[in-house]
Design a protein around this nucleic acid. Structure first.
Length: 786
DNA sequence: AGCTGTGGCAGGGAGG
DNA sequence: CCTCCCTGCCAC
């Protein structure tokens, strides 16, 4: 195994590490069946800038100036020397004079940017080697789920409200053990003590739960505080340590209260789901039940209890609730087994524990590999570069309307391939670690994937799959890392080089397809939808066509057929729908499918697309009339017309921004504030529009969805009729104006006649391709030399 | 205590 | 009316 990827330490038995004061680590070591803790010191280690200011500084303590940049690398101190502390004080004075903001303290000194963690991680990296000798199945995992009682009249459970309390604790573990701590038999105080006893007794390596960070653990901790119970869940008998954290999945930030339990790893399947969906973007919700069904992991005959009915079941049908809670932990176990495998195998590489890896972002993972190697070779680390990336992927739409048959061809791993073939790496990577890592990870991923495809045995196969997907996660993040402002090894110019090269490859592909008389419909970043030329009809012929396309591209860049479809409905850039040969419809793009659209709009648009792709114009008209009627007669449920939005910021931050005039008021925040309950960033708010003005002004016509009463519907039908017509407008470009008006009209003076209705295909832009995009071979020198 | 990127569309508020 | 600007959500 490559030591740059997997670390160098030989100690194979360390289960977990934990910081113990300022200058020591506590290390948990497995010997046979038992686990013992041992304290180990770590060395002082700092990043200091402007080291020439250090009085008494000696060359042997190592410093390096980054050539040509005029910027000094940070000083790495690997050992103390007599004048060191004076030097640190000196540096500090200098920094304070220059008003550098980030000062942290170490011992009795204020020190700039103490990085105890990466250093100890480096020095203690052996901690993860235990994982190298294990498979995921060897882990002892315990699942935990609590059910709480909500005082009638309240919608949400609250650990500090009189009457609210824990009523059930369901536990299960990977040995098949299951246990319910029942609030009918024990007082809450005894329940909590029983919980501690169970966990200590089972002694799991991993504790898992769905939303365990934001719900179960904080709730349990709050109830413990109330009863004076010590929640000594740690392997050393310590109580969990909580800290507020936030992580972002693409643009979406998620705040949570992370909890560390000494000697164990905490896994929240909600976080796993979000990070999974950040790539796929397929899921409708991150609820446990939906997710379990989505992955096909729900036990047969699973018991369901709606969240707001938990207290009712407790009062009336407690046995059902017990069954429900047990099904919850079983689903959590299955979900975690499905999703945490890749984090587990990443832990074999990274200098962090399993629990940390599972909630870390990709950039931090890549950086840890780079930093570990730089520290091992005692080489200074660069500072992040200022600046910004300017270029992204190439997107275009050439034809709109319904076309087919259509082929989707994409460049496999576009950005990683460009970085590898063009040797694009951060300019500050003196040791050349970056590309080496990318190259080795790519090789390992291909090997692992091949091995997986060869393997029949399901457990081994899923192990290999988890491994190769963990490599893939890292590989795909190398490009993002280059453009990341706070990355030590960022390089915006190189990131631009990657995207510009990607654009060039796409333009080359477009020209090549056109040269062969194919019709290019839509292009986005690394993939092209096109109608193949006459004579290219079967799947084999299409594959062959794509192979030829691929051969026109330079070494290291491979184009593959990613899919073939009966028809495409091309609407706008990044917005289209596909009709597969399996007759399934896939809809893409924020203007056609968006969680910010009212549910009725989503289903309406979906059905419209279905009808258009099947040429069923009569059905299209009927559909419009049906919705028209239901809206006017208040026949829709609040779930259908409520708009659901995610709050990105805290209410306090929002208010501040509004007050400062930096931001407009928005309906979702208005409703959230009016509801009076505490809101966190990331919460979803459902609201609807009242009154009868089709263009309501201001944010005073919105009401929380919970307040809607079907007996006295006060939803604004004029407004929702306007919305229906806005959704219909999307389809105007596909028809002649008179046909469009006839279809999307409830006027029944003349019955609708679908005869003669035809679909339009329109050219959007015909961007002339420049000379250098000519697909002749041998014209790629510019970027192949890199 | 920790945070990967750009491009594109829709919708709403503010102000001309 | 329109344009500008911001936010949310989505594709890759």
């Amino acid at each position: 195994m490559n030591p740059v990827l997997f670390g160098h330490s030989p100690d194979p038995r360390i289960v977990a590490t934990q910081q113990a004061g300022d200058d020591a680590m506590r290390v948990y070591i497995r010997t046979g069946e038992t686990i013992v803790a041992e304290e180990r010191p770590f060395y002082p280690f700092f990043f200091l800038s402007e080291p020439e200011l250090i009085e008494g500084f000696h060359r042997k303590h190592w410093v390096r100036r980054l050539e040509g940049t005029g910027v000094y690398g940070h000083l790495c101190v690997f050992e103390e020397w007599p004048a060191m502390w004076d030097a640190v004080r000196h540096i500090l004075d200098s920094y304070n004079r220059h008003a550098v903001p980030k000062i942290e303290s170490y011992q009795d000194l204020d020190v700039i940017h103490l990085i105890g963690d990466p250093v100890t991680q480096y020095l203690m990296q052996s901690g993860r080697t235990m994982f190298k000798e294990m498979t995921f199945g060897d882990l002892h995992r315990l699942q935990l789920d609590i059910e709480t009682y909500t005082t009638p009249g309240h919608r949400f459970s609250n650990a500090t409200r009189a009457g609210d309390r824990i009523i059930l604790v369901a536990l299960s573990d990977s040995t098949g053990w299951e246990h319910v701590i029942d609030g009918r038999k024990l007082s809450e105080e005894r329940m909590l003590e029983e919980l501690v006893r169970c966990v200590r007794d089972r002694d799991p390596d991993v504790i898992e739960g769905h939303n365990i960070f934001n719900f179960d653990l904080p709730y349990i901790l709050a109830r413990c505080a109330l009863h004076g119970v010590t929640l000594s869940l740690g392997r050393d008998g310590s109580v969990p340590r909580s800290f507020d954290s936030r992580t972002s999945f693409a643009e979406h930030a998620f705040e949570y209260t992370a909890t560390d339990i000494a000697g164990r790893h905490v896994i929240d399947t909600l976080l796993l789901l979000q990070s999974y969906d950040a790539v796929r973007r397929n899921m409708e919700s991150y609820g446990l039940k939906y997710a379990a069904q989505y992955f096909g992991l729900s036990p047969a005959g699973r018991t369901y209890v709606p969240g707001e009915k938990i207290s009712w079941y407790w009062d009336n049908e407690p046995a059902t609730l017990v069954a429900y809670a047990l099904d919850d932990v079983r689903e959590t176990a299955a979900l975690s087994a499905h999703l945490s495998g890749s984090s587990f195998y990443l832990t074999q590489m990274l200098p962090y524990g399993f629990g940390t890896v599972a909630r870390m972002g990709s950039a931090a993972k890549i950086e840890s590999l780079l930093v570990r190697e730089y520290l091992r070779r005692k080489h200074a680390l660069p500072r992040p570069r200022e600046g910004a990336q300017t270029t992204g992927g190439y997107t275009d739409v050439f034809l709109t309307g319904v076309l087919g048959p259509v082929v989707h061809a994409d460049v496999e791993s576009l950005y990683p391939s460009i970085m590898l073939t063009g040797s694009i790496a951060p300019g500050t990577d003196d040791l050349g670690v970056f590309l080496g890592l990318l190259k080795d990870l790519t090789t390992m991923r291909l090997d692992t994937k091949r091995a997986m495809l060869r393997t029949e045995e399901p457990i081994e196969r899923s192990r290999l799959d988890a491994m190769q997907s963990s490599f893939k996660i890292l590989i795909n993040s190398f490009y993002g890392y280059l453009g990341y402002n706070r990355a030590l090894f960022n390089d915006h110019a190189r990131a631009d080089e990657v995207t510009k090269t990607g654009q060039k490859i796409l333009r080359t592909m477009i020209a090549a397809i056109r040269a062969e008389a194919g019709k290019v419909v839509e292009v986005d970043t690394d993939g092209i939808f096109f109608v193949p030329p006459v004579g290219v009809d079967t799947a084999d012929q299409e594959s062959a066509f794509v192979s030829v396309l691929s051969s026109r591209l330079p070494e290291g860049i491979t184009v593959a057929m990613n899919g073939r479809y009966r028809k495409i409905l091309s609407y706008k850039k990044k917005n289209y729908a596909l009709l597969g040969y399996d007759n399934k419809i896939r809809i893409k793009g924020s203007s056609l499918v968006s969680r910010s659209m009212e549910q009725f709009g989503r289903t309406f648009v979906h059905h419209c697309i279905d009808s258009i792709l099947h040429g069923n114009f009569d059905g299209l008209h009927t559909l419009y009339v049906q919705y028209h009627t239901s809206i006017l007669s208040h026949g829709l449920d609040v779930r259908d017309f409520a708009r659901v939005e995610t709050l990105k910021d805290t209410v306090a931050f929002y208010e501040e921004e509004v007050k400062a005039g930096r931001r407009n008021r928005s309906a979702a925040y208005t409703v959230a504030i009016a509801s009076g309950r505490p809101v966190r960033a990331g919460d979803r708010i459902a609201y609807y529009i009242t009154g009868n003005d089709p263009n309501p002004r201001g944010t005073d016509h919105c009401k929380a969805a919970e307040e809607w009463d079907p007996n006295f519907p006060d939803d604004n039908s004029a407004y929702y009729m306007r919305r229906l017509n806005e959704f219909s407008e999307k389809f105007a470009v596909f028809f002649q104006p008179q046909d469009f008006r006839a279809i999307f009209s409830a006027d029944d003076l003349f019955p609708f006649d679908p005869a003669g209705v035809a679909l339009l295909i329109s050219d959007v832009v015909e961007e002339p391709l420049s000379e250098e995009d000519d697909p002749r071979p041998g014209t790629f020198g510019i970027w192949l030399e890199g």
